[in-house]
Design a protein around this nucleic acid. Structure first.
Length: 570
RNA sequence: CGGGACGUGGCGCAGCCUGGUAGCGCACCUGCUUUGGGAGCAGGGGGUCGCCGGUUCAAAUCCGGCCGUCCCGACCA
């Protein structure tokens, strides 16, 4: 394409409200424009990248024998009612009524619709099946953010596996895990496969694909030594045992003004954080519950939700807290509390001589023996791991990395198939619900993740397989007839080779063209300029900035040889 | 939903405190000069100052309400 005819609205300044590098650069480079919060238009350059990511994902799916579908984006309420999710998913599903007053939703995922189709699979002999689509999902995110990273409307590759037994599901899951690793490699994303929570999908096992980036929203605990990696929503670590006193008397003592763990550490008669009990008042599916952790440990809300099976978990309002415990946050404790469920983290097991609030403002207890003084209903893993703690597998220190979640694969089991009636007859002629898996990759988020991973202070640096164009020919001056002639010749030659080439034939100054080509991140640039008259051009690699002088006659072949290996990896 | 910030041509901003009929840079159009790292000069086009209401002779500016956007926390690809 000729740049002069393309719509590439580059900006010198990023929008003031853009924070993430990918957001700024995709807007500045003319790839995307915001329509409103969480909804972006893909401009020609953005669509080209998006399409390339899609095709890399598509190829990865085809390689494991997956079959492509395209399902409706708009669904009748009835299928969601049948799976039970019409009620369970909450406000993140867009819902509305048609002219007949029938309830409808915009699909946020497609287990229901694919299961509906899978009802036509009647025999175990037709299994296994892997079905997928690349299609728009709609989620009424409470907070869209960071450009393409978190939006309310986005393309997702979602696939679904159908098997008779657990071994079949395990196999389909493994096929996807390997396919995802290949896909993210081809996208030049260093994705980690990590253990994850299943969240709204439910099911037995799940692995997330996480790309380390400061723009991410998830934290992953990982171990360099043994390769252990888990989302902090799942991760554990070894906790060094604490030596407590053999026994201690429970004693109430005055702590005027003490409202925090830190304050209780320093007050007369207080205790270090690891010898305190942190008492959090949570509302779990509507019921007020006390959640206990070691004073220096942090609660992970997803762990709490997962381990209680709750749909909704939130911190109690101060008023609710006061109503149930008679004290304000800062003086709360579970000693003697019997009217409320009490959940405690494993790290408190067997602990003695601890300090905690006395449910009376300005009073605390010391000498608390957890088993003796507190009626713990359930012991759970609720603690969020921190960097530096020993790996649960090998004991080496864990790192905690901020990551972008670019893919997630789930073992669903038979829950949806049972609800939707997706059954087959097995070899004995017995009707059995099929065993399902569900697997997602966010296309636009992957685009943003690549942009996050590959840019510098001048702009984007697309890896060849996803670049909107592979080469840009920059004509330094459109008045330089020999430069124009050389550029036109190379443009024709490269196109003939099947190369995706952009000819910057704008009547603009060289500096503008160089800056724009770097902003939009084309991996290679051929500069047709003052050396053109001597039969040479310059070849510049975007990533390194390295420039070679090349004979015009050899330039196209040189570019072809540079692109070939990069394309092969795609 | 809780907390914070912001809303003025396409983008970045000033003006607001102390009301007086909208300005700067970039981008855009015309002309001349310039032409290998975001050119110079001259001329020009484009804005119901987020919306509604109030105060006032007069509101971008003061007051009230609403809406929207962004950032930090609870959700997800």
């Amino acid at each position: 394409m000729r740049w002069s005819q393309l719509f590439i609205p580059t900006l010198r300044d990023a929008p003031a409200d853009a924070e993430a590098a990918s957001h700024k650069l995709l807007v500045r480079g003319g790839f995307i424009r915001q329509l409103h919060a969480g909804h972006y238009s893909l401009l020609p350059l953005g669509l080209r990248v998006h399409d390339k990511v899609e095709n890399i994902v598509r190829r990865g799916m085809e390689e494991i024998g997956a079959q492509e579908f395209l399902l409706p984006a708009m669904h009748p309420a009835s299928i969601w009612q049948r799976s039970g999710r019409w009620d369970s998913v909450g406000p993140e599903m867009f819902r509305f009524r048609d002219r007949k007053e029938a309830d409808l939703a915009l699909g946020m995922t497609h287990e229901e619709v694919f299961s509906e189709i899978a009802r036509e699979v009647a025999s175990y002999k037709s299994l296994p099946q892997i079905w997928y689509q690349i299609q728009w999902k709609f989620r009424d995110e409470p907070r869209p953010k960071s450009g393409l990273l978190r939006v309310r409307e986005f393309a997702m590759k979602d696939s679904y596996s159908f098997d008779l037994d657990d071994a079949g599901l395990d196999h389909a899951f493994e096929l996807h895990r390997e396919a995802y690793i290949r896909i993210f490699e081809r996208l030049s994303l260093d994705a980690l496969a990590v253990q994850a929570s299943s969240g709204m999908m439910g099911g037995a096992g799940s692995v997330e694909f996480m790309v380390p980036s400061p723009a991410g929203e998830d934290d992953v605990a990982c171990c360099r030594a043994c390769g252990y990696a888990a989302n902090v929503e799942r991760a554990t670590s070894r906790v060094a045992p604490v030596q407590d006193a053999e026994s201690a008397e429970l004693e109430r003592f005055a702590t005027p003004g003490v409202r925090t763990i830190a304050a209780l550490e320093t007050v007369q008669g207080g205790a270090p954080a690891h010898r305190q009990i942190k008492t959090m008042v949570m509302v779990i599916d509507g019921s007020v519950t006390l959640v206990l952790l070691r004073g220096d440990h942090r609660l992970n809300l997803q762990k709490l939700a997962d381990s209680t099976g709750a749909a909704e978990v939130r911190a109690a309002e101060p008023a609710e807290t006061f109503e149930h415990l008679g004290a304000h946050p800062g003086s709360l404790g579970a000693v003697g509390v019997t009217g409320l469920p009490v959940l405690a983290d494993h790290a408190l097991h067997g602990r003695r001589d601890l300090a905690t609030g006395a449910n009376s403002d300005d009073w605390h207890y010391r000498g608390v023996d957890v088993e003796r003084d507190i009626s713990v209903g359930r012991w759970l893993d609720l603690r969020e791991v921190s960097a530096g703690e020993p790996c649960p597998e090998c004991g080496q220190p864990l790192e905690v990395l901020r990551c972008i979640e670019t893919g997630h694969i789930f073992k669903l089991g038979r829950r949806y198939a049972e609800a939707m009636g997706a059954t087959v007859l097995d070899a004995e002629g017995i009707e059995r619900a099929v065993n399902m898996g569900s697997y997602g990759i966010g296309i636009g988020r992957a685009v943003a993740a690549v942009a996050e991973a590959h840019h510098d202070d001048r702009g984007l640096i697309w890896p060849v397989p996803v670049a909107p164009y592979e080469v840009v020919i920059t004509v330094a001056s459109m008045r330089d007839e020999s430069a124009v002639a050389v550029a036109e010749r190379l443009y024709a030659e490269l196109r003939e080779q099947g190369c995706e080439v952009l000819l910057d034939d704008r009547d603009a100054r060289a500096g503008v063209k160089f800056a724009d080509s770097e902003l939009i991140g084309i991996p290679w640039r051929i500069t047709a300029g003052r050396a053109a008259a001597d039969g040479a051009v310059e070849l510049t690699e975007r990533a390194s900035g390295d420039t070679d002088r090349v004979d015009t006659s050899a330039a196209a072949a040189r570019v072809a040889s540079l692109l070939a290996p990069a394309r092969l990896s795609a």
